[in-house]
């Protein structure tokens, strides 16, 4: 199945923090709004982003959930709406706003699971990266929830 997605800033930063940006190569098409790129760039372009194949796109900002979302999140939602692609975000408010509008949304944990599902990672590596995402990155996610996700990998 062909996979196309647009990412907001979160997954790019969180996956970079655990040296896992290469997992985004699982997507046949990866779009990055210019606003998102500028947000990433402001914190220093992470190693690995230059090796990734992605298309920078201009985007209007979506009005969905606009009060609580930042410019990058609104731009990524607008691209997902316009092009009918998966939205990649780790922000719960962005996820809920996009889901309510019928957009398919996934985050960094899903990208690691996708890498495992498609054979890029073995089970131990997928587990290790899920735990690293929880312990070593700026993403806030409850430890018990990540462990539940790991058990789902094992139940596959």
């Amino acid at each position: 199945m062909t996979l196309a997605a647009v990412s907001d800033t979160g997954p790019l930063i969180h996956l970079a923090e655990i040296d896992s940006l290469e997992l985004l190569s699982t997507f046949d098409t990866l779009l990055v709004p210019e606003t998102v790129y500028e947000e990433v760039e402001a914190g220093g372009v992470p190693d690995g982003l230059a090796d990734l194949s992605y298309e920078l796109v201009e985007a209007e900002e979506s009005q969905l959930g606009s009060e609580e979302l930042d410019a990058g999140e609104r731009a990524a939602i607008a691209v997902a709406e316009d092009r009918g692609v998966v939205l990649l975000t780790d922000d719960l408010a962005a996820r809920e706003a996009a889901s309510a509008a019928g957009i398919e949304v996934h985050g960094s944990i899903g990208i690691i699971a996708l890498g495992y599902g498609r054979g890029l990672l073995d089970r131990d590596e997928a587990v290790s990266r899920m735990r690293a995402l929880q312990r070593e990155t700026s993403l806030f996610v409850t430890e018990a929830v990540v462990e539940r996700g790991i058990r789902m990998l094992d139940e596959r």
Binding site: M1, G110, I112, Y116, V141
Partner: peptide, 14 residues
Amino acid sequence: REVVEEDVDWGLNA
């Protein structure tokens, strides 16, 4: 929990 379950399920089946 809801988000992680959705994501892992999607990742394993996409």
